[in-house]
Amino acid sequence: MNNTINNTRRLVTSRGIHLLVCSLSIITSIPLVFIIGKVFFEGIHNLNLQFITKPTPNTFNAMIAINNGENIPGGIANGIVGSFIMLILASIIAIPIGILCGTYLAENRHNKFAKCISYMTDLLQGTPSIIIGIVVYAWVVIPSHGYSAIAGSIALAVMMLPLIVRSTEEALKMLPDSLKESSLALGGSYGKTILKVLLPSASGSIFTGVLLAVSRVVGETAPITFTALGCSMVHWNIDQPMSSIPLLIWQFYNDPILQPLVWSASLFLLIFVLFINISAKIINNKSKK
């Protein structure tokens, strides 16, 4: 029976699989290099001061500039301001609700209603962004008779909410029970215990969660398209249509004239997203130590 054992074949198979795993892992990482490389080389030319201070040019002016061999005039200031305003508004809506709701879930682990809410949070997190976009269109844009930055912010807030809920819940669950007990034992009230002891202790992880939620939605296009619509001017009126960086990319991606601008906008967005991502990781590592 033992003579059927073929050690060489088994060891070669094992080595072969190891090699295959390594090669496929390398293949998986190649697109990152390609994507970042492509966006960088296409986008770097146009990344200048005017790019972040001027709004998008019209196609005609851009065409003239290209014919004269110049850089495209204008930039994506309208997108940057729009993204900024909508992110702030979305954060104002989503962060307090998300943290309170996450606290609720962490405090009521075995309650049926909490379990139900937990499933609904998963449901919300898994809902495709385009659906959130058109639902906000139905609930906000139609009743208010117009596209607006507020509508866009609400859509982004709905996307951020489950992420913040989950990270708050996880962060609070990591805290030892003794922390809460000792605060209560010292006579701290329930509300004070949570606001002054538990949440501050978990603030590092919660902040990381918020950062990741921001980085997730800053690149979202689908929920903005039918809510904030887009606008070619820089303005601060949140009841008016507004643009955002990903929205500009989406609107002009197959416009041959504005292509350099699209690549630069992508580079700008990519740097921003990766920067937030990496900072979130660093903060998370620090707060764990």
């Binding site: 390609f34 990519l270 991502n277």
Partner: peptide
């Protein structure tokens, strides 16, 4: 290292994936 690469891949906005797919 691989973990970081994969995390960064997850962070790239979908509109940039689309752009890359479209032009590359």
């Amino acid at each position: 290292v691989l973990n970081t690469i994969v995390d960064l891949l997850a962070g790239i906005p979908s509109v940039i994936y689309g752009l890359w797919g479209f032009y590359v």
